[in-house]
Simulated scan of single mutants.
Amino acid sequence: MIPGTWPTRALVVVLILANLGFLAWRQGWLDTLAPGGLQPAGASQREPERLQRQIHPERLIVVPAPLAGTSAASAADPAAAPSARPASSADAAASVSTSSASIPTASLASATLDTGAACYQAGPFTTEEHRRVSTALSQQLPTGSWTTQTVSAPGLWLVYMGPYQDPEMLERKQIELRRIRNLNFEEVRSPPSLAMGLSLGRFNQQAQAEASLETLRLRGVRTARVVTIRPAADLMVIRIPLASAEIQRRLPALPLPAGKGFAACTT
């Protein structure tokens, strides 16, 4: 026998036996050798041993994951969860009921509005005209249904020639003015006091009209003059912001100055 061979063989045999024992232990082949097996308590996770170690498996209840809005108190106390859910349902029902109850109220409020209401205005009026119109409105329309707004009306001045006695004289004067190069003019038909006359310019400021007249005189226009058509003044506009169908029916019968009746608001 070769020296040193026997110890080596014995070591190999021991290693093989150890590996076989470890394999048998891992596979559970040794569990039947002693009550409860050779594995540590709770180590085996194989069937059916794992099922046999369960205590009252029939009492197991699968609980779904809590919703995001579930309170911490409900999660800590499972017994309170069933009662919490009906309460939430009741709250939701109450909320729906409250919203439903508010809808008829809003509908009733909107029903009181006249869907045919529109804005109407009349004017502009002078101070005296406004006084007369206000008196008539106070007798025909509900109190507070109309308002008064003050607007600034620019004046109007003409550089004017005339009036002339007959159309022939008016025509001769127009022939004379056409001989002046680049001179613009027009026939005046209103107001009646200035009919049969000629306008050589319209201006919103009297000073501008006077300056234009001086320029025309330098060009040979001798008989022209400045006339006032309308001085600058503060006028008044009457507005009915929400004229109902009934008020609109009454508006045409109101006594207003000619050309200043009620019409739909422009702004």
Rank of each mutant, 00 (worst) to 15 (best):
A117G: 03
A117T: 05
A117H: 10
A117V: 06
A118Q: 09
A118H: 06
C119H: 09
C119E: 04
Y120W: 14
Y120F: 15
Y120L: 13
Q121K: 09
Q121V: 08
A122Q: 04
A122C: 07
A122P: 01
P124K: 09
P124W: 10
F125P: 00
F125A: 01
T127I: 13
T127N: 03
T127K: 06
T127W: 06
E129S: 03
E129N: 06
E129G: 04
H130E: 05
H130K: 12
R131P: 00
R131M: 06
R132W: 10
V133Y: 04
V133N: 00
S134M: 12
S134N: 06
T135C: 05
T135F: 12
T135Y: 11
A136R: 11
A136H: 07
L137E: 00
Q139M: 12
Q140L: 14
L141Q: 02
L141C: 02
P142Y: 15
P142T: 03
P142W: 15
T143R: 15
G144N: 08
G144L: 14
S145V: 07
S145F: 13
S145Y: 14
W146N: 00
W146F: 15
W146Q: 01
W146D: 00
T147M: 11
T147D: 05
T147H: 08
T147L: 13
T147Q: 10
T147S: 09
T148A: 11
T150V: 15
T150Y: 06
T150S: 11
T150W: 06
V151F: 07
V151T: 12
V151H: 06
S152V: 15
A153T: 13
A153Q: 13
P154D: 09
L156P: 02
L156H: 11
L156Y: 09
W157K: 04
L158A: 04
L158P: 01
V159P: 01
V159E: 01
V159N: 02
Y160A: 00
Y160W: 11
M161P: 01
M161L: 15
G162L: 05
G162F: 09
G162H: 06
G162T: 03
P163C: 04
P163W: 14
P163R: 15
Y164M: 03
Y164A: 01
Y164D: 00
Y164N: 02
Q165F: 11
Q165I: 04
D166C: 03
P167V: 08
P167M: 05
P167A: 02
P167F: 07
E168I: 13
E168K: 13
E168C: 04
E168H: 12
E168W: 13
M169S: 10
M169N: 10
L170M: 08
L170K: 08
L170C: 04
E171R: 12
E171H: 12
